[in-house]
Design a protein around this nucleic acid. Structure first.
Lengths: 108, 108
DNA sequence: CCCTTTGTACGAACATCATCGTACTACCCG
DNA sequence: CGGGTAGTACGATGATGTTCGTACAAAGGG
């Protein structure tokens, strides 16, 4: 079974995490995962980019520590590393998720 | 008196804010301002970059809505737009500031 | 009025990043 | 084993971003 490298929480870098979340496509992925869309193959997200670009974005998220990727056959099950992020940077992910939802809403 | 353009809170974009804060130098500026170093000239921050690069970073922060810049003679007084940020993206700035402090600490 | 201080404008050099297409690998199912 | 599915590797390309140096502008003090 193939496995993928995941950083441990004490190696999370704010620099890397913010750069990862600065990209709209990667923020879209994280938001979907937060909305309960765990356990979906990468390509089933229907992202508006090609296959290799999709691979690239998921890897950036994994290497930043934001998501966990586990092989299931030829597919990959993705999930948010909510607890690990909370232990290293408490409140960061929830705040960014809430801001992302507010950002896509019509301005009041 | 010279004045500078500042976006209003309803025009703040999460994209722009996260990109701005992804840069370590700009995060350094924001952290210093949060630590009470308001009302200081740009160059007095002693950033490890040249003059024109410094101008560039401060402008990125201003155009993202993160700081306010007001001329005072030939110098510029900088301050964090804490209230405006809180109204548009509640909790975002405090979470990032806390994470930034935690990031620079030795790993426990 | 000259000089200093503070910041800006401009252009160049360099690095990084997002994107793509094509070729390839790994796994599963019949 | 053969075919299909999901993802990776690689190289290229174009856009964006950081950095700098130099020349310039605006404000204030002697």
């Amino acid at each position: 079974m193939r496995t993928l490298e995941h950083p441990s929480p004490e190696n999370f870098r704010l620099d890397t995490i913010l750069s990862a979340l600065a990209d709209p496509i990667r923020r879209m992925i994280v938001c979907r995962l937060a909305d309960g869309q765990h356990k979906q193959a990468c390509l089933s997200f229907g992202l508006p980019v090609g296959k290799s670009t999709s691979t690239h974005h998921f890897r950036v998220l994994r290497e930043a520590g934001l998501i966990e990727q586990r092989y299931q056959g030829t597919a990959i099950l993705n999930s948010l590393r909510t607890a690990d992020l909370e232990s290293r940077f408490p409140g960061l992910l929830p705040a960014i998720l809430a801001s992302a939802r507010r950002d896509s809403e019509p301005v009041v």
